[in-house]
Design a protein around this nucleic acid. Structure first.
Lengths: 107, 107
DNA sequence: TGAAAGGTTTACCATAAGGTAAACTATATA
DNA sequence: TATATAGTTTACCTTATGGTAAACCTTTCA
């Protein structure tokens, strides 16, 4: 889970994911939109693989990448679990109590 | 968005968020479950604030923290957007093509 | 008026990210 | 058989994380 959120924390990798969501791509295709060198692309893909978000298949000298759905699903589940909690609590009594209990706010 | 996913990438911070989803808490309360020093707790909270996930109100010497829903919602929206895309594409034709087009897989 | 309690700040350390240039491996092709 | 192409590896740099200890500021309270 750490690795998944770490992978999503970089804008370049998020754009790579967006690209892959529309179909598989090679390493070169994934790196082309960005003005970064090839080793940088290699590192990003490796990080995405380490998070389980991307799978690679080698065909000759070409590496074709595809997305894996499971880790992203788990990340979404984590968020969803707690989002539900606080939406029900913060919109209701808990928020009222938190806001009104202490009177002397200085910020 | 970078900051939000970065904040979620650490297990200590995720547990702090889980704690906050059940109601507001002080800095001390948030750090107590972990065997880390006070400066470490301060840093985690700061990072959560920087991501907009946590809001702090000072009452005397006590700092009371609450969750903010918006950034988490945005993070979830980002995931949801692309998850939809690839679930519809990978479960269907695109995945079929990706898997079958190149014959000589060596991995 | 002290001293304790809640937090922060200031160094300081180790490791991971994100980037580069240069050299390298392996496959395809003229 | 050269040479170009796709991608990786190694070595290096800078900045951000995650942690500590020690000193500090504020507020509370005996």
């Amino acid at each position: 889970m750490d690795a998944v959120f770490t992978a999503l924390a970089d804008p370049t990798r998020r754009r790579m994911i967006a690209r892959l969501s529309r179909g598989s791509a090679t390493i070169g295709e994934l790196g082309r939109p960005f003005s970064i060198t090839k080793p940088a692309v290699t590192k990003h893909i490796k990080l995405l693989e380490r998070a389980g978000l991307v799978r690679r298949r080698k065909h000759g000298r070409i590496h074709r990448c595809t997305l894996e759905t499971k880790p992203m699903q788990q990340a979404q589940d984590w968020i969803e679990r707690y989002r539900k909690f606080w939406q029900q609590s913060l919109d209701g009594l808990a928020r009222f109590l938190d806001e009104t209990k202490p009177e002397g706010e200085d910020t």
